[in-house]
Design a protein around this nucleic acid. Structure first.
Lengths: 335, 335
DNA sequence: TTGTAGGCGTTATCAG
DNA sequence: CTGATAACGCCTACAA
C-alpha cells in the first residue's frame, strides 16, 4: 500500500495525495476529503524511509548517556524524550559507558543513522583533556550537539546546565555556618561539572585552587558502590582523618556516607552532616533522609530541547544556559 | 557525497561499491582495496534512509515503557539497549505513561516509523480487560512484539518474564516460617504481573482466590509516593488493623513501609518484617536495608533480545520464557 | 568479477 | 487547484 495505490483509488495524482498528507493548503476541500477517506479506509501510512530520503530527515535525535540505569541519567532521558516527542521527534537511545573511544564510535554510528541532532547527557562527556573532545567538535559540523549538564565551546555546540560551582560553594558555606569546620569533599568524576563542583568546594574552604587536589586529605576522589564508599570512609577515619561533614558529588556517594556513619555509630547530623548531589529518588529512601542539591534537571532538559528546536529551525539561540541549583534540606544537616 | 561519487573516484560502478560496502564476496581483492581507500579518504557513509528504503529496514526496534525514570524500567532499558546494540540494532525509546489510548497512539507512531520490532517493558502493558490489548495484537501482525515482564497470547507476541506468583508465594511462606502471621500485602498495579503476585499472596495465605481482594483488609491496593504510603499504613494502624509483616509489589512501596515503621516507632524486623520487589538500587539505600525479591531482570532482558533476534531471523523461538525469582535477604526480615 | 538499469515511496518543481 | 516527472541514494537482479 503506497501513495500510488491511494492516488489511484481516489482518482487523483500522487502529488495531490502528498499535498493532503502534508497539509498543503493548495487542495480543494472536496478532493481533500475524498483522499482522506481513501487513506482512512486503507489504513495507509506513508513510508517513513522514503520520506526520510526525500526530506533528508526522519525527525530523530540521538540521546547518548553513560548508563541509562543511573537514576540521574534516567530522569534526564525521561524529560528529554517527553519534550522531544512533544515536538514530534523520536529519541534514539545510546548508552556508551565512560570510555572515549567507545563514545566516539557510537557517536559516529548515530551520525550515520542521520539523526537530526545529538544530545550528550552528563558532563562526563566533556573530557578535561580537550583533545579528547575533538570528536564532538567534528560531529558538530554535521548536526547540532547539545550537552546536558556540561559545556563545551564550539560553533554548533549548545549547553544547558546548572551552576555546580555555586551550588557546592553555597552548600559548604551553609555547613560552615551550621558549625562544621572539618568538611570532607567526596567525588567520583573529574568531568566538566565534577571540576566545577570541586572548585566550589575549594573556594568555599579558602583553599588555593592551584594546588593539586589529589594531595589534599579533605578531598577524596573515589569510585565505588555504596558499600565500598562506606568502607573507604571508615578506613580514612581509622587512619586518623577527622571530619564533621561530608559533601558528595553524587547522591550514591552520600548514601555510602550515611552507611559509614551507621557502621561507626556516628550520629547524623549531630556529629556528622552530609549533603548529596542530584536530589534523586534515593535521597528520600535513606534514614535519615538526605539533604541534597537539586540541580534542576527538568528545567535544564526542557531548556535543552527548546534550544535544540530553535537551532534546528535556524533561529538565534543561546549557546549556553545556566540554572541555579537549590539545596533541598532533609535530615542529614543541622540547617 | 554518495555512492556515485565514490564509484567515479574509484573508477568502478556503483554496484561494485555497494558490494564492497556490504561485504559481498564477489569482488576482487584489488578493486575492494581501491574502493575502501576512496571511501576512507572521503569519509563516506552510506545514506541510511536510502538503505532503509531499499531494504525496508533500518535495524531499529522500538522500546516502549511507562516511565523511563522508574528505576526498574530504567534498568530494563539499559539491558535491552545494550543487547540490541550488540546485535547491531538501534533502540527508539518511547515513554507512554499508563493510559491505554496514549499507548495505542504511540505504538502506531513507532510502527509508522517502520521499526523492525517493538518491545513492551513492564507488565502494566497487558491490561486485565483483554479488549484493551487488541491494539497490541493488531501491531503483532506487522512486526514481532516482545513483552518484558508480562505475557499476552498471540501469533507474533513473545514474552520473557519471571515467575511472580511463585516469588510472592515463597516470600509469604518464608515470613510465616519466621513467625509472622498477620501479613499485609500492598500493591499498586493490577497489571498482569500485579495479578500474579497477588495470587501468590492469596495462595500462600490460604485465601479463597475467588473472593474480591478489594474486600480483604490485609490486601491493600494503594497508589502513591513514599510519604503517602507511610501515611496510608499509619492510618490503617490507627483504624485498628494489626500486622507483623508487609509484602509489597514494588520496592518504592516497601520504602514507604519502612518510613511507616520509623514514624510509629515500630522496630524492624522484630515487630515488623518487610519484603520489597525488584531488588532495585533503593533497596540498598534504606535503613535497615530492604529484603527484596530479585526478578532477574537482566536475564529476562537478555533472553528477550535473543528471542527477538531469533524471531527476526525466522528461527523457531519460544513464545514465552519464564525465570525464577530469588529472595535477596537484607535487614528487614528475620530470616 | 564487473556494469547496467529498474525499483524502493516520497517530496518538490514546474507546467497547465 | 492539479498532474507529470525528476530527484533522493541505495540494492539487486540480470547481463556481459
Amino acid at each position: 500500500m503506497n501513495i500510488y495505490d491511494i492516488s489511484r483509488k481516489a482518482g487523483v495524482s500522487i502529488a495531490t495525495v502528498s499535498r493532503v498528507i502534508n497539509g498543503n493548503s493548495n487542495v480543494s476541500e472536496k478532493t481533500k476529503e475524498k483522499v482522506l477517506k481513501v487513506i482512512d479506509e486503507c489504513g495507509y501510512t506513508p513510508n517513513a524511509f522514503a520520506r526520510g530520503l526525500g526530506l533528508n530527515s526522519m525527525n530523530t535525535v540521538g540521546i547518548m548517556c553513560a548508563d541509562s540505569s543511573d537514576p540521574f541519567l534516567a530522569s534526564a532521558i525521561y524529560f528529554l524524550e517527553r519534550q522531544l516527542r512533544q515536538n514530534n521527534y523520536d529519541a534514539l537511545l545510546c548508552c556508551t559507558g565512560y570510555e572515549v573511544d567507545v563514545r566516539e564510535k557510537y557517536l559516529n554510528l548515530l551520525l550515520s543513522k542521520r539523526t537530526d541532532a545529538i544530545i550528550l547527557v552528563g558532563s562526563n562527556f566533556v573530557e578535561a583533556n580537550n583533545e579528547n573532545n575533538q570528536y564532538i567538535r567534528d560531529a558538530s559540523k554535521k548536526v547540532p550537539i547539545i550537552i546536558v549538564n556540561g559545556a563545551l565551546d564550539g560553533e554548533n555546540i549548545f549547553s544547558a546546565l546548572c551552576d555546580d560551582y555555586r551550588a557546592v560553594y553555597d552548600a559548604v558555606k551553609a555547613l560552615q555556618e551550621s558549625g562544621c569546620n572539618k568538611i570532607l569533599y567526596l567525588y567520583n568524576s573529574k568531568s566538566y561539572s565534577g571540576n566545577k563542583k570541586l572548585s566550589g568546594y575549594l573556594s568555599a574552604m579558602d583553599i588555593d585552587p592551584s594546588v593539586d587536589p589529589d594531595q589534599l586529605d579533605y578531598v577524596q576522589h573515589f569510585n565505588g558502590n555504596i558499600i565500598e564508599v562506606r568502607d573507604h570512609l571508615t578506613s580514612l577515619r581509622k587512619n586518623g582523618l577527622e571530619f564533621d561533614a561530608i559533601v558528595t558529588a553524587d547522591d550514591n556517594l552520600a548514601i555510602g556516607a550515611i552507611k559509614y556513619a551507621k557502621l561507626n555509630h556516628i550520629s547524623i547530623p549531630d556529629e556528622l552532616s552530609i549533603i548529596g548531589y542530584n536530589n534523586s529518588i534515593i535521597s528520600e529512601c535513606s534514614d535519615p533522609e538526605l539533604t541534597s542539591i537539586d540541580n534542576k534537571l527538568e528545567a535544564v532538559c526542557n531548556n535543552c530541547i527548546s534550544t535544540l528546536m530553535g537551532a534546528l529551525n535556524g533561529q538565534e539561540v543561546p549557546l549556553k544556559t545556566v540554572f541555579s541549583a537549590e539545596i533541598v534540606k532533609r535530615g542529614t544537616t543541622r540547617f
